[in-house]
Structures are given as structure tokens and as C-alpha cells.
Nucleic acid binder design. Sequence first.
RNA 1: CGGAGUGUAGCUCAGCCUGGUAGAGCACCGCUUUCGGGAGGCGGGGGCCGGAGGUUCAAAUCCUCUCACUCCGACCA
Length: 483
Amino acid sequence: MRLSEYFLPLLRENPSEAQIVSHRLMLRAGMIRQSSAGIYSWLPLGLRVLKKIERIVREEQDRAGALEILMPTVQPAELWRESGRYDDYGKEMLRIRDRHDREMLYGPTNEEQVTEIVRASIKSYRDLPRMLYHIQWKFRDEVRPRFGVMRGREFLMKDAYSFDLDAAGAKRSYNKMFVAYLRTFARLGLKAIPMRADTGPIGGELSHEFVILAETGESAVYCDRAWLSTDILATEVDYHGDLEPIFQRWTGLYAATDEKHEPDSCPVPREELVEARGIEVGHIFYFGDKYSQPMGALVIGPDGETAALEMGSYGIGVSRLVGALIEANHDGAGIIWPESVAPFRIGLINLRPGDTRCRDTADDLYGKLLGANVEVLYDDRDESPGAKFATMDLIGLPDQLVIGPRGIAGGTIEVKHRRSGERQDVSIETALRLLTASEPGPLAASAPGTKARRPGRARSEGGRKGPRSGKLQDGERPIPDPA
RNA sequence: CGGAGUGUAGCUCAGCCUGGUAGAGCACCGCUUUCGGGAGGCGGGGGCCGGAGGUUCAAAUCCUCUCACUCCGACCA
């Protein structure tokens, strides 16, 4: 994409309404614009990131055996009366009346809706287990929206629902999602730690929240130091096998939110305990027949007996993750995207568009990168060099290629790695090889969080890896050290 | 929902106390000089001062109401 043809409305100064760094950077980098309190429009750059996250979430859900559906945003109040939540939910629920004066609501979640779908169609244990998910906009009329997309009223969420015959089956489904979540966040370049959680308004008995560590997190969390050096993607996963050992392994490592942490009875010795800030990005629940019972979602078991479905629900805050990723990946100059979610893989800067040699070289390189399926944002604008550098640093693309008269004279261009700040003058051929090869290049080796980059795969991978029943590849995403 | 603030140009803000008909920097447009970390010069466009009502000869400024947004607290993907 040529920047001269792109829509990237940058802000040079911090908008006064934005307090936290991710909110400020998202506004400044032209990713979002606020529509009203807690409601945002997504501009091209922000939308690209949102879609990348969505794709990874989708791939891991599919891999775990969940099936994608799409349920409506507007739901009938009637359904929620069946579960009893219409009155329980309170003012957080946005209630609407249609022209026939029928009571509707903009869904804050979809347990009732999905239960209604399943109860109408699944009558036998032979049709179980099933997991359904969708990625859809939700609305919760927060009293006080804040932190930009991290705590908006309208937000994009992946919510999955599992249906099993009995508690043992439900636990197996729970484990699948538990593992899928670990993998999803790891691929996003985040260290997400599952913590035992209260079930809140969803209800139920077993629940974990997934919290990522970020200096600017909203709540204090405590965990075993061992968490920092774990690599979840190194664990082989067979979703058809027994996942309980993996579940046990990852829940065995100490981790607790502020409310649950007891300094006096903490099993981890002081020197091994990490105190950090956390942001909740996912939450999973097992709640049995809380909805299936009142709503009559029943199946006949092998013994001929009728039983209410055992259910669980599993949420990931997709839009919140955009903010959370920035909280965990930024510096004074701007955003630093992990490669897996970067809106573009490479920022190509032509410092002197007026110069024929610079322009020809840049145009040529741009064409070759596109030809190699590398997502590249090409700054071909007639701007001062400083402005171009600042722009690229702000929007945080993983690598920058700088073409200017100084280098061209010596036959080189500059490659700059955004995260480390490391720069190298290399030949054009070398640059191309570095950025399109499947093997890690020299720069990558010294740069944290990029050791296994495979830049050329961005498009080609595209979610078509065939059936996801088998083993998983290792090291799809390295995990940057959050400390 | 309690408490506290803020609404003036696209962005950051001054002007308001002490009423006299709208400003700065950045951004934008034109010309020009520049050109490796948000450059310089000259010229230019842009605001019913959140909205409504009131006081006054006169309101961005004083009063009343209203709307929006933000912050702190209680609640959440």
C-alpha cells in the first residue's frame, strides 16, 4: 500500500480525552476515532490489526474443534426472560423497542441465543459434544467507559459455547478451550496467564480468566517466576487426546489476581514471586445446566434418560486485545507490533521521492515485496525525512526499509528493526532476502521476539491448513519477555 | 450511580475573574528555500466560542437550564 493513497489520519499531539498509552497511540496512529463515549469507528490501520487478531483467534478455535456461526446483535427480550437474566442484568444491558413495541436488546453476550439454537436442533447424545463460537459485536452500557477500546461499551468479542451430555464431557470441552486460549494468546505475542476466577453474572462453578502482563495493566497480579520463561507453543497438543495433563500443568503454576492473592499463605517463595500488572483478555466458564435447565435444552442419553445439557462459555475480548497488545508493546516513539498482528509487515520509506534513483529503487523494491506476498506500507509522500521516520515509528511496523540518497550512492539501503532499534546498511538483494526468506535473518537473531519470524507466510497461511485434528507445529510465534 | 472537571479552528490551548464583536502553536493551501530523525521564509483559508433562554446599548466572557465529553470512586471481555 502506498501511503500517498492510504487513509492514515495521524495526530501529532495527544488528544486530551485519552489517558492511557494504548488509547493515545491508537488515536494518534489513526487506528480509531471515537464516535461517542466508549464507541469507536475503526479506520484502515486499526481494522487491519483487528482482523489479524480475529484470524488467529478463529484459527485456534477451529483447531480446537469449535464451529463458527454468526448470531445477531439484537436479540428478543423473551429469550432472556426464559433464563431469568432480563431482570438480573440491570442497566448494563441496552434495551430497545422495535416499531411493534416489542422489547429487544443489544446483546451483551449470547448464552440464551445459542441455547435456543441448540435446544431446537440437538435432541440426542449422539449429536454431542459440540462447540459453537462466533465473533460478533457486543454492547454493554458501562456506567463509565474508559481506556479507549480496552473498556468500551461496544466491543468485538469471540464467544464460544460448549454442549455436553455430562460433567465429564463438559470438563473435556473446558480443557480444549483452555488450551486453545493459551495458544491463541501466545500466537498474538502475549504472555497470558490463566487465573482462577469468580464467575460473576455468567454463573457456574469453574472459571479462569486469562490475564496478560503489561506495565500499565489495571489490576495487580502475582505469579510464579516460572511463568515468564514458559513457551506454550512448544507443547504438543492433540485435541482428541486427554488434555487434563496440560490443564493440570498450567494451572499448577501459581498465579493469582489481587483479590485472591494471600501473601501469607502463598506457596511461592518471595524471591520466585513476580508482582505485575495485568489486563484481562479472556474468560472461560463452566456453568453446567444454568441455562439449559430453565430454557429446556434437553437431550436423551444412551440410557434413555432425558438430561439438561452441560454447558460452558468462553470469551475473548478481540477489540480489547488491540489495546492490550499496545499496552504490552510500545515505547516512547509509538507502537511496536508483534509480527503476527502487525497491520503491515514492513514500512518502506523513500526519503527523497523527488530523486530519480531513489524513486526507481523504492518503486522496484516495493513491487518485489508485493510480489513476494509481503505486506508493505510504502511511504512515497513528499514529506521531510524526520516526519517519515516519526510516522513509521509511531505506527510500529516490525521492520523499516529506508531508501535515501546517502545509501543509494553506496548501493545500500537501511534496514531498521523497530523493536530493538537496530539498523544495518545492506544491499538491496540482502534486504529482500532478509525480509522475504523463510529463514530468520541476521537482524532477527539478535532481536527479542522475532527469532522465528517467517515473514512471507502472512498471506499464504491464510487459515487454510486443512483439518485441524492433528498435531500442532511448534514455534509459530515466539513469546517476547514481558518483563 | 456518587464526587470533580472540561466544552473556543482539524489537534493542543490562551482569552472569561475586570462584557466592547476572536487569538497562538501545530496541521491545511500556494510560492520558495530545504532535504538521513516531526525543517525555514513569505502569503493564504478556516471558528453562529457545545446548545437554548435570560441580563445588558453590547455576551466567548455574567446568570439559568440543557447536552456532550473527561477524570476519581463502586462494576466489567
